[in-house]
């Protein structure tokens, strides 16, 4: 049984594409056939984060308009034969999207993949609605920051009202909270919303906490999803998140302020 998972947030710049890339890479590395789709028509970026920008020939809109087959448009990841990327178009307008056409592509993908990860654009317009429409599960990416939490709450409302599952009255989309750019030091100082606050406000299950880290920028600079950086805390946190998604019981890490040695405490890191 294949699963469609939307990675969404409402607000832009919170880490949807970073999360989509690492989540899909993680699922594939665990042996699952996975495809990750960029729904951000006109503002393609997943290809950069996945490091396949120079191999894009056809895109999602070409497939929707039947100008190219899925086989032609899918890009196989250079490191993992289980992982494919369906890039967004860079030029076409958003009107290309409609439920039937997107549904046809999703159904075709369902026949060949275990997991279909949909990287949503920011906002609550057509692209974002299309990304969540066919979802079975959702990763709601949230920063510990006031506007991000509010926008995530709005998106939760959309998942509950505008998805195919909601319209058909089926079992609702399973929602998971992913908190990114988390900084325990700033939480301890009382200047950043704590994990418990975000969970209480949004009321959904936590699946991962990704600590604020230099590694994320370095990873996207080089086009290697941060989950492949096994040394970095963010990479490890994404790995844990994938394990939890696959049903393993993995405790949360990187939630507390790192204890520093005597010299570090005196002179700083």
């Amino acid at each position: 049984m294949s699963k469609v998972i939307v990675v969404t947030s409402g607000k832009g710049g919170v880490g949807k594409t970073t999360t989509s890339a690492s989540f899909a890479t993680g699922l594939a590395s665990r042996g699952h056939r996975t495809v990750v789709i960029d729904f951000d028509i006109g503002l393609r970026n997943l290809d950069l984060v996945m490091g396949c920008e120079r191999r894009v020939v056809y895109d999602f809109v070409n497939v929707i308009n039947e100008e190219a087959s899925l086989k032609q448009a899918l890009i196989r990841d250079k490191n993992d034969s289980n992982l494919y990327i369906l890039p967004a178009s860079q030029t076409r307008d958003k009107d290309a999207f409609n439920e039937q056409a997107v549904g046809r592509v999703i159904n075709e993908l369902r026949e060949n993949f275990d997991y279909i990860v949909c990287d949503s654009p920011a906002g609550i317009e057509k692209g974002a609605l299309m990304a969540l429409f066919y979802a079975d599960e959702a990763l709601v990416v949230t920063n510990p920051e006031i506007s991000s939490v509010r926008d995530s709450d709005r998106i939760l409302g959309m998942l509950a009202a505008k998805s195919l599952r909601a319209i058909n009255g089926d079992e609702p989309i399973k929602e998971h909270l992913v908190v990114t750019r988390y900084s325990p030091v700033r939480v301890e100082g009382g200047e950043m919303l704590a994990l418990e606050d975000i969970q209480e406000l949004l009321g959904i299950d936590l699946i991962g906490v990704i600590p604020e880290s230099q590694a994320v920028l370095q990873a996207s600079n080089s086009g290697i999803p941060v989950i492949r950086d096994e040394q970095s805390r963010s990479g490890q946190a994404y790995r844990d998140m994938v394990s939890r998604f696959l049903g393993e019981d993995v405790p949360m890490r990187f939630l507390d302020v790192e204890k520093k040695g005597f010299l570090k405490r005196i002179f700083g890191a």
Binding site: I146, V187, G189, G190, E191, M192, R265, I266, F267, G268
Partner: peptide, 21 residues
Amino acid sequence: MSIFDYFRRKPAKRSAAIAKE
């Protein structure tokens, strides 16, 4: 926080509680 930070930093504002409210 190092010894230098004590001179540099202003007292931390506990604004997270305001955000939550």
